[in-house]
Amino acid sequence: MTRASAPAGAPMSRPAGAAGPLEPSPAPGAVPGGRGRRVRLLSSAVSPRTAWVLRALSVLLPLAAWQAVSVSGLTDPTFLPSPAAVLAAGREMAVRGELWSDLAASLGRVGLGFALAVLISVPLGFAMGALPWAQALAEPLIGLLRYLPASAFIPLLIIWLGIGEASKVALLVLGVVFFNTLMTADVVRQVPRRLLEVSATLGARRLRVAFRVVFPYALPGVIDAMRVNAAAAWNFVVVAELIAATSGLGYRVIRAQRFLQTDRIFAILVVIGLIGLAIDVLLRLLRARVGRWAA
């Protein structure tokens, strides 16, 4: 009776003191004495309870370190205020109404600029991802423009559009539109060719395939791209409000810096972080709702 042959390419070894035929060496990662079992180096998932504990620790540990440094006397409170001082400064600005008016101004600019960027970038990115001629026509220019820092356009935007709201919104559009276009195009190009072939076999026309197959498949990825670039929109609105602004969170940061009010600066940064987190959670929920089939 012949011995079972080893898989092609498997390394062979001879047991110690034996003169028989070579035996296949165990595959890398296989458990000795086990058949088909492999060592898992990384866990695939954590329980919901553990996940929430880790999320809480990710916030509480830096906060505890911040509190420890502030009460240790190693730093001047003028440069690093305590969490309690930051909370008090935020409460004071909220009571006086400054925080709400500045937050409304910044939210309005982010909302308008980001919406315009999405309205431009999603159709353009969809066309670039679905149509080879559109990619060849637009990708070289967009690939070049995305490397130009949007903040470098501020002098030109002020010359062209003045120091009003138009220049601030335009800066937001420039900071988001190119990256969101390329990311959308990449998502559309990842649609499996098999889906397109099956649709064509069933007699679907190109326009129907685009709206009934490609767009639904790519929509979760498009929302993920929006999540990434929403953070860029907040970065640029603060930059825009640092120059020639009379309201907004960035404007309030500059006023606080002039009087060394670092507690107010930290409070505004915390507010921006919380608003950004809320936007990210909303987009996550939207993605989960419109793309439940996506992994």
Rank of each mutant, 00 (worst) to 15 (best):
R3M: 11
M12W: 00
S13Y: 00
P21H: 08
A27D: 13
A30Y: 02
V31S: 08
R37K: 13
L42K: 09
S44Y: 04
V46M: 14
W52G: 02
L54E: 12
R55K: 12
L57W: 13
L60W: 07
L61F: 14
L63Q: 04
L63K: 07
S70P: 04
T78N: 05
T78C: 00
L80G: 06
P81T: 08
P83V: 10
A89E: 09
G97L: 11
W100P: 00
L103A: 15
A105G: 06
S106V: 08
A117C: 10
L119F: 13
V122K: 06
P123C: 12
G129I: 04
I142W: 08
G143C: 06
L144T: 14
L144M: 15
L145Q: 06
A150R: 11
L157I: 04
I159V: 15
I163A: 05
A170H: 07
L172Q: 01
V176H: 05
T181G: 03
T184F: 05
A185W: 01
L195A: 10
A204D: 09
R205G: 15
A210R: 12
L219I: 08
I223P: 05
R227S: 12
R227L: 09
V228K: 02
V228E: 01
W234F: 15
V237W: 02
E241I: 10
A244E: 11
G250W: 06
Y251L: 06
I254T: 14
I254M: 15
R258I: 12
L260Q: 12
Q261S: 14
F266I: 08
I272N: 06
L277C: 01
I279P: 01
D280H: 11
R289G: 12
A294T: 10
A295F: 09
